[in-house]
């Protein structure tokens, strides 16, 4: 089993959705971690969920970054542990310097709450291993500050280094101006760090894990994490005192490590009114 931790800051509001996705849908052990906690060695993967930590005051994620738990998250990432930041979690990871760049106010100045199409740019990471490069995933977004920005040198570096994992796109995978919901540079929706063990994205994979939610493409990301632990060769090297990471027990994982454990890709039409919601 892969032990997940869901970090809760004052103002986090997607913690229960994330817990549900791990617990009820993925059948993995998961705990909430209050932001005052400083010991995270018992976990294999940490998730910073969405919300409005500290009311988004000053800048989204700016104050959460100084919560006691964030020093532990930095050590966890440094040791090679997997860290996933969703929406506000992505903002916190950039503020903490665990991911390059920053997230600014949407270019239209409006909160965007809708389904978007996302093109997988790099499938050779622990967070996208069940996808194939060029695959189009459909997930919801809900944010006011999602415009990805990095200076030209940083942008060039992360592009050349394969750190851009998801881009906003049209349903057929083309990059168009209309498909970029917030003005992100290079239509960037999600990036990882140089070591590929920290991933941040603005879309919400935890909100699309069952057909009843309008789609289940979020499982491509969340189950990639399990897939990563199912193959011992891919297990990240961890240096904490807890010994070998859990998850080598392959019998505890969903059958197969391929797309067969995922539901068929939902067509746009099947999303009904959700597809055009705002």
């Amino acid at each position: 089993m892969i032990r997940f931790g869901v970090i809760v800051f004052p103002g986090t509001n997607c913690d229960a959705d994330t817990f549900h996705a791990i617990d009820a849908v993925m059948k993995q052990p998961v705990e909430y971690i209050w932001h005052q906690e400083a010991s995270l060695d018992r976990f294999d993967c940490l998730i910073l969920p969405g919300g409005f930590s500290y009311g988004d005051h000053l800048r989204a994620g700016a104050i959460a970054r100084f919560s006691p738990v964030m020093q532990a998250v930095e050590r966890f990432a440094e040791a090679g542990g997997l860290v996933l930041g969703i929406c506000n979690g992505f903002q916190i990871l950039t503020e903490a310097g665990l991911l390059p760049g920053a997230l600014l106010r949407n270019d239209a100045l409006q909160f965007r709450c809708k389904w978007v199409d996302l093109r997988v740019e790099n499938a050779a990471t622990p967070f996208t291993s069940l996808c194939h490069s060029g695959q189009v995933l459909r997930m919801p977004i809900a944010h006011g500050d999602g415009r990805y920005f990095a200076d030209p040198d940083t942008l060039r570096r992360i592009e050349e280094n394969g750190q851009v994992l998801l881009r906003y796109c049209a349903p057929d995978g083309r990059l168009t101006e209309e498909s970029n919901p917030n003005g992100s540079l290079n239509a960037i929706a999600g990036i990882c760090n140089d070591r590929r063990n920290v991933f941040g994205l603005m879309p919400h994979p935890e909100r699309c894990v069952e057909p009843a939610l309008g789609g289940a493409d979020g499982l491509y990301v969340l189950k990639s994490i399990l897939d990563n632990f199912a193959d011992p060769a891919k297990v990240p090297v961890r240096h904490h005192a807890g010994g070998a990471p859990a998850g080598r027990d392959e019998s505890s994982l969903p059958e197969g490590g391929d797309g067969a454990i995922l539901p068929p890709r939902s067509s746009n039409g099947a999303l009904g009114s959700g597809g055009s919601g705002r």
């Binding site: 000053l58 104050i63 100084f66 950039t94 760049g101 920053a102 920005f149 990095a150 200076d151």
Partner: peptide, 8 residues
């Protein structure tokens, strides 16, 4: 450290 983000 906090009030401004040097990236932006």
């Amino acid at each position: 450290k906090l009030l401004a983000n040097p990236v932006i």
